[in-house]
């Protein structure tokens, strides 16, 4: 199945802004992060189809995965 992955900010060093990748049926958010070699996960925010998602969440064909990290200073 195919998912679209969008990287933002600090995560752009792992790949282009937008990529379509082919992954196995039943793959999770974590599998996608592994595919990109993303190891910085302490403060990572992942959205699947614009909603907050977690590492163990299973993906479906056509899902859009957005990856970024929050800042909190003022």
């Amino acid at each position: 199945m195919n998912v679209k992955v969008k990287l933002y900010g600090d995560y752009l060093k792992y790949g282009p802004e937008e990529t379509y990748i082919d992954i196995e049926e039943g793959s999770t958010v974590e599998d996608v992060l592994n595919r990109f070699g993303i190891k910085e996960r302490k403060y990572i925010i992942v959205l699947v189809n614009l909603k907050r998602a977690w590492f163990e969440d299973k993906l479906n064909d056509g899902d859009v995965v957005s990856v970024f990290s929050p800042v909190g200073g003022g």
């Binding site: 302490k42 403060y43 925010i45 959205l47 907050r52 929050p70 800042v71 909190g72 200073g73």
Partner: peptide, 24 residues
């Protein structure tokens, strides 16, 4: 809270600290 749910409060408190250390 929809995007940064409070269940990750501890992580975000650390993020506050780290943010300060990283500067602005």
């Amino acid at each position: 809270n929809c995007i940064f749910p409070e269940r990750e409060k501890q992580i975000l408190f650390k993020l506050t600290e780290e943010n300060r250390n990283q500067g602005i």
